[in-house]
Amino acid sequence: MKRILIVLCTLTFCTLSVADDLPSDPLGSVQWNDMYNAFLKGHPAVFDKRVKVLAAGYAEDPMNVPVTVDASELENVEQLVIFADFNPIPLIAKYYPTDAKPSLSFRFKIQQASPVRAAALVDGVWHVGSLWINTAGGGCTVASVGRMVGDWSDYLGDTYGKRWSGKKTSRVRLLIHHPMDTGLVEGIPEFYIQDLEFFDEADHELARIELFEPINENPTLGFEFNNTEASSVIFMMGADNNGNEFEARFAQ
């Protein structure tokens, strides 16, 4: 008993000493300090309601949890890092909205109830928004539908989407056929799209995104790019961790 108490005290002390000025998590997740150290270290963090994580509070389908992250109330967002504390692979995406609104829609696989967070980097400070999502769970350790049916390779890389052009921005929504295997299902190694880049006809980068294993099978993503002089066509290029390349074009 005494030993347990000592261990507990030491643990608390360690956590406190690591977390020096780290603000305490409004959601009270025990993983917050570890998450900060894993993904946000290097810049101080503040919790900021202007970074919105929008989703239903209960994940109806743990394989496809729809989320919209919106930090457009902040200016000059360099990067958005999105992660779920309690997922076996917490990191979901890193988004660099070079010439785009700092907002992103995606779907991901959730393994158990967890905070989902978006951290927006502005002038060397992480502004963090969070939301608890409850679920019956099991999204990361179930084989993808394409694996179970066995036909995923027939459609690999097939991309569908549409562009909605507004005055200042263009919304692009797209779906890329890909199993997005997490590597957590026995006998199926990790296999997922890693990078997508969007640019205009003058080769000017609009945005770049790094995806990770928790993104859903057949990733369905939504972006809002700023209109540029040369953005009458928006191009996409990307690759998965096996070297397969993906391309798409979105005309006005």
Binding site: N64, R173, L175
Partner: peptide, 21 residues
């Protein structure tokens, strides 16, 4: 309604999306 969006929306999306590659 929110649950129905999760169940049904992908099929409506697929009717709007066109092949882009």
């Amino acid at each position: 309604f929110s649950r129905s969006v999760v169940h049904l929306f992908p099929s409506y999306e697929s009717r709007v999306f066109k092949r882009v590659n």
